[in-house]
């Protein structure tokens, strides 16, 4: 049976991995689609929106909200799995 310390190390690693995955999405939608790639993406249109412009003024914000709720869900699961959740 792994010691408590090793368990906590594992928990922390999993936590970091979750955060890094979510932060890369955070980076891609805002700095990627909204800024660095905004010009080429503007060639694509959805309704009246040019796609790069849409990401910069709407899409990135919607994604941010979703990211936090995904984080909450994943972390609650993780806390339970490693039995460190609050009762």
């Amino acid at each position: 049976m792994p010691t408590h310390k090793e368990q906590m190390k594992k928990y922390w690693k999993r936590n970091i991995r979750t955060v890094l995955i979510l932060l890369s999405v955070w980076f891609v939608v805002s700095f990627g689609f909204g800024i660095l790639l905004a010009e080429p993406l503007n060639a694509i249109k959805i309704g009246g929106y040019q796609l790069g412009f849409w990401f910069a003024q709407q899409g990135s914000i919607f994604t941010f909200v979703i990211l936090i709720f995904v984080y909450v869900y994943r972390m609650n699961k993780l806390d339970e799995e490693f039995d460190v959740n609050e009762k």
Binding site: L22, L23, W26, A56, Q57, S60, I61, F64, Y71, V72
Partner: peptide, 15 residues
């Protein structure tokens, strides 16, 4: 401003 003042909450929540 739109991205800057909302994207900060992702950092706040996760980090």
């Amino acid at each position: 401003y739109l991205m800057g003042w909302t994207g900060g909450y992702v950092l706040l929540a996760l980090l």
